[in-house]
Amino acid sequence: MDSIKGPSSKKLSLYGSEFESRFLIGSAQHPSPAILLDAIVASRAGIVTVSLRREAGKNSGKDGAGQQFWSLIQQSGARLLPNTAGCKTVKEAVNTAHMARELFDTPWIKLEVIGEDDTLQPDVFGLVEAARILCAEGFQVFPYTTDDLVVADKLLAAGCEVLMPWGSPIGSGRGLNNPFALRALRAHFPDTTLVVDAGIGLPSQAAQAMELGYDAILLNTAVAKAGDPVAMARAFAQAIEAGRLAFQAGAIEARDMAAPSTPVLGSPFWHGEHEQ
């Protein structure tokens, strides 16, 4: 019987909330606000990631970008997952999380503590420390992490109920750089909700992650920068659903040699031993 949480669940479960879709979509970099909204609809995602930026004063003549976006994103009807993008220290991440909680009125936070600029690799030491602080303060933390098993264990000990390992560097479109490590993570934490976040470029890569038993996919650039973001959002939705179905169906084991799918006994011109 399916449990509520974990990889065998029929619905995606995140800190007690359930979602039909296993697609979390980012709201950045889309060609226009209208295309962003259409892409969200096409993705069927129930969760959209958002962020914070410095807001110019209304007397400056450059005002209102934040409120315009706020009005737009509320039209989507999606649950919002604010991030701490750009934060490089524990202090920055923790204080950004607090600002996000007040502004978006949600305990959810996608926790990013970036340790290296070229790869945007998480600073996993800072990540664990920030996660511990935020979980203790009542946040429901979605940590953007690597595929490291020990770090994952420490994030769970810090209070995280969801882990979001990268597939490959943010925006790279390289897909799953280390399927072995992701498979090991899935096997090691069978009851933890695992979301592949970052690096997915193609629907086939999203399907691959879902076939490994991951619970959901979070991506942004692959849709936003596609030639037709709305069509690509739809393609990812289908791939994520197909990958999930394949995981539940149970795939065959790969083998080195052929195994005929058509029974050969008694076939015309059969080359086996003749029956006596």
């Binding site: 980012g26 709201s27 950045a28 958002v50 914070l52 930026r53 976006f69 991030n83 600002m99 943010i170």
Partner: peptide, 10 residues
């Protein structure tokens, strides 16, 4: 002083 508002994010 930081004054921030909602924005797009990934």
């Amino acid at each position: 002083v930081e004054i921030v508002a909602p924005m797009e994010g990934g």
